[in-house]
C-alpha cells in the first residue's frame, strides 16, 4: 500500500485560497472541484460529500472553524488525496459549537489506511496555535505544505 505524504496529497491544483462561498453547499462544491482538479476524484464525489451532510448533519465541522468534508471510499475516488479551501468570509454550516467555518479540507480516500499519516500531520498542525495562525495567513500552497511538514506528529513517533 502506498501511503500519502503532504506533497502527494496536497499538490498545487487542490488549493483555493480566499475562495468565496455563500453557503456550506457552495463551500463543499469548491472542495469537490479541487479534489477533481487534483486527479483524486470524479465529480460524483462532490455530490456524495454534500449528501453526507444532508443525511447526517454538520458533524464534519470537527473543531472551531474547520470542516473535514468527505464521503467514503467509492468508485468516485481515484486516488487518496485532499483539497484545501480557505474561505475569504467564514460560512455557517449549522454546527452548534464550531461555526462559522473558515477552512474546508476535502478528503478522498481509497481505503481506511493510506491517509492516516497525513491526517495526523494536519490534526497536529491545526491544533497548534502557531501553525494554525500560519495556515490562516499563508499566501501560497508552498507555505501551507511547509507549515504542515514542519509540524511534528506525536502520534507517529516511536511507532
Amino acid at each position: 500500500m502506498t501511503y500519502a505524504s503532504i506533497s502527494t496529497a496536497l499538490p498545487d491544483e487542490v488549493f483555493a485560497l480566499d475562495a468565496v462561498a455563500d453557503s456550506w453547499r457552495a463551500a463543499l462544491r469548491i472542495a469537490g472541484e479541487k479534489l477533481t482538479a487534483g486527479g483524486f476524484t470524479t465529480s460524483a464525489y462532490t455530490d456524495e460529500m454534500i449528501a453526507a451532510v444532508e443525511q447526517l448533519g454538520p458533524y464534519i465541522v470537527v473543531a472551531p472553524g474547520i470542516a473535514f468534508a468527505h464521503s467514503r471510499p467509492s468508485p468516485a475516488v481515484l486516488r487518496t488525496g485532499m483539497s484545501w479551501v480557505r474561505l475569504s468570509s467564514p460560512v455557517e454550516f449549522g454546527s452548534a459549537k464550531n461555526d462559522p467555518v473558515w477552512l474546508v479540507i476535502g478528503l478522498a480516500a481509497t481505503d481506511e489506511q493510506a491517509h492516516i499519516g497525513v491526517m495526523s500531520q494536519l490534526a497536529t498542525a491545526l491544533a497548534d496555535p502557531g501553525s494554525n495562525e500560519a495556515l490562516r495567513v499563508a499566501t501560497t500552497p508552498e507555505e501551507i505544505r511547509a507549515t504542515l511538514d514542519s509540524t511534528k506528529s506525536p502520534q507517529r513517533e516511536g511507532k
Partner: peptide
C-alpha cells in the same frame, strides 16, 4: 458518519 474521516482524527487524539 463514514468511518474514515473525522473518526480517524478522533482516534488519534483519544489514543494519545
Amino acid at each position: 458518519g463514514m468511518g474514515i474521516g473525522t473518526s480517524v482524527l478522533l482516534k488519534m487524539n483519544v489514543e494519545q
